[in-house]
Each structure stands twice: as C-alpha cells, then as structure tokens.
Design a protein around this nucleic acid. Structure first.
Length: 316
DNA sequence: GCAGTTCCTTCCCAGTCCGG
DNA sequence: CCGGACTGGGAAGGAACTGC
C-alpha cells in the first residue's frame, strides 16, 4: 500500500484523535488574537498582511497600531501614503503597507467598501495571495478551510506523511488532501490558529517531541527519536549593509522628518547616512527604487515620505 | 514564437542565538 | 557582556521550462 493511498484515506479514528488532542492543547496554549473571533473581514485582511514575513509575537503590536489609526476600511483608504507608512513604522517590508493601502482603495471604490469573500477576487488584490485570501475567508467570513502555511505543512508532513524535516517538500496537493480531511467542521477559526501556534511552539524546525501531545501517533516520531540529522533551514543573506538594511534606514529618517513636517533635500539625506562615495551612489539608486514603489516622493532636489509632497497634510 | 505554468530568488527586520 | 550572524515565511517578479 503506498503512502499516497494511505494519506488519501486517513482512518476516521485517527482524524478524531488528532482533532481531540489539538483542541485540548489549544485550550491551554493557543494565544487569542483580536481578529480571530470578530468575523471582521477588514481585521482579517490587516492581520493577514501583518502576518507575512513577521513573527507572531510582533504582529499584535502592528495590528493594534493600524486599527487604532484606521478603524475602518474608509479611514485606511482615505489616509495619505505618508500616514500609512508612518503608522506602519519599522514593522518591515513597507511595500506591504503600500499594497494594503491600494487594496483598501480598491475595496472602497470597486466593492462598495466591502472586502470580497470570493477567493478569485481576493487574490487579485495587491499583496493578497492564496494564504492571505484564506485568512480573510476563515476569520472574516467564517468559511471552513485551512490556510496552509509552512507551519501547517511541517506538522502534517511529520505527523501524517512521516517526513521529519523542518521544510516538508513533497507534493503540496498531498498536504491539501490531508488538511481537508483533518479540518473539524465549523471550527476553522479555531483550528487554523491552533495549528499555527502548535507549529510555532512545539512542532518547530527543531521539534520539541518530548512535550508533544501527538508523539504517540506521529509517523515521523521514530525517525526523529533515532536522532536523524535535520536539514538546516535555508540561509538568508547578511542583513548588515544589504539593500534592505539601507532601505530601512532611508525610510526611518524620512518618517522622522515627516513627523516634524521638515523638508529635506535628497543630497542631505544621502550625506547624513554615509560619507562613503560608492555607498552614496548605491543609496541614490535605492532612493529611485523607493520612489518607483511610491513609498517616497521626489520633487526637484527634495525628498519625502509617501507618494506626493504634503500628502500628510490633507487628512481631515 | 508565443502563452501558460512552474520554479527560484528577493524582499523585509526584531528577537534570539552564539562565539569571542 | 557585546556584537554579529541567524531565523522566519508569503508575495512578487523574473527566469526557466513546457506545450502547442
């Protein structure tokens, strides 16, 4: 009997047991977040965008700051790009904030200030892919499905498919089949965050099998127990002096200048960051790129936060 | 040659880890 | 203790591949 066949028909007994064990674990361990029980598609959208590239521990702070500043879709859509970036602060990947801003404008202008619930419409929105679309459907509209991320792929990859590695690389369709069978009906808004939290705290890259409630039924457990060598997770490039490092520096300075409503010349911006002439040349290119992405504006020899000069002064 | 699909790389930074 | 390296992970865009 091959693995695929077994996985396509997980015994009902095992499905029930896994659901029961994880739901019990959730009672004591799942961290409650404000977007998980509100059935608010706007909250779900903001949370989904915040969750991209960001550790769970940092999401709440960004989410709260955003909702405090822009409590409704219209407030967010009508804000200036500078205000959006100011609120986003140093949360990282500012393009996400710009995309979220564009998405809110589209929802206001095209969908009558409503965030769509249809997956095909959702993934057409800037910065919304399959994962974020699923988050909106699950938490915003109570649709029963699994938002498959690497945590969930790793858990199902280990517990069901028997792959011990931190990054499960078999057919993604197989994981979808597993996910569909294990999803407890009517409980997607609890089940998804439970799996995500479980993957973030127990079934991590280097798993904590001793304290794992699924250890007796985990197919990968014997391999993990025998001390199999886990593949290292992919290395990321050095952050210091990288483009993303300098982009972050440029935006930080412009956020401060924007706060003080100060004008700033492009030359002063570059010189304030470095005296190194080669680096200055590189920074000039990064400034051009940031302007193309509508994260900063350039006019004559001046530079500022947002997509147009003075766009932070029109909010009333 | 072209369109469609799949694969690969880059983007982003605070918290954590680790070696000196 | 300090500073530098590592970690996490979906979206987007480009590159490579496939099929007609």
């Amino acid at each position: 009997m091959n693995l695929q066949f077994e996985i396509e028909r997980i015994p009902k007994k095992n499905v029930g047991l896994i659901q029961k064990l994880l739901m019990e674990w959730a009672k004591d361990n799942k961290i409650p977040f404000p977007w998980q029980n509100n059935r608010n598609p706007y909250y779900a959208l903001v949370a989904g965008v915040c969750a991209q590239q960001t550790q769970m521990s940092r999401i709440l702070e960004i989410f709260n700051r955003w909702i405090d500043s822009f409590p409704t879709i219209e407030k967010g859509a009508n804000a200036s790009r500078a205000e959006i970036l100011q609120v986003w602060g140093n949360a990282g990947y500012p393009r996400r904030a710009a995309n979220l801003h564009k998405t809110l404008k589209i929802c206001v202008n095209k969908y009558d200030s409503i965030i769509p619930h249809d997956e095909d419409l959702l993934i057409q929105l800037p910065g919304v892919g399959p994962f974020t679309a699923s988050i909106i459907q699950i938490f915003g509209y109570g649709i029963d499905k699994t938002a498959i991320d690497t945590n969930i792929t790793r858990i199902y990859g280990r517990v069901i498919c028997g792959d011990p590695q931190p990054v499960h690389e078999s057919d993604p369709k197989l994981i979808q089949i597993v996910a569909a069978q294990l999803l407890p009906s009517g409980k997607a808004h609890i089940w998804n965050p439970t799996l995500m939290d479980f993957g973030a705290t127990v079934c991590t890259a280097k798993p904590k099998c001793d304290s794992c409630i699924l250890k007796k039924i985990c197919v990968a457990r014997p391999k993990l127990h025998s001390g199999i060598e886990l593949l290292p997770t992919k290395k990321t490039s050095t952050f210091m002096n990288s483009n993303r490092y300098w982009r972050g520096k440029i935006l930080k300075i412009l956020r401060e200048k924007n706060n003080n409503s100060e004008n700033f010349s492009r030359k002063n911006l570059v010189v304030s960051l470095t005296k190194d002439l080669d680096l200055q040349e590189k920074l000039q290119k990064l400034i051009d790129d940031l302007a193309k992405e509508e994260l900063i504006w350039l006019q004559e020899n001046m530079v500022g936060l947002g997509d147009s000069p003075g766009s932070n002064r029109n909010s009333n």
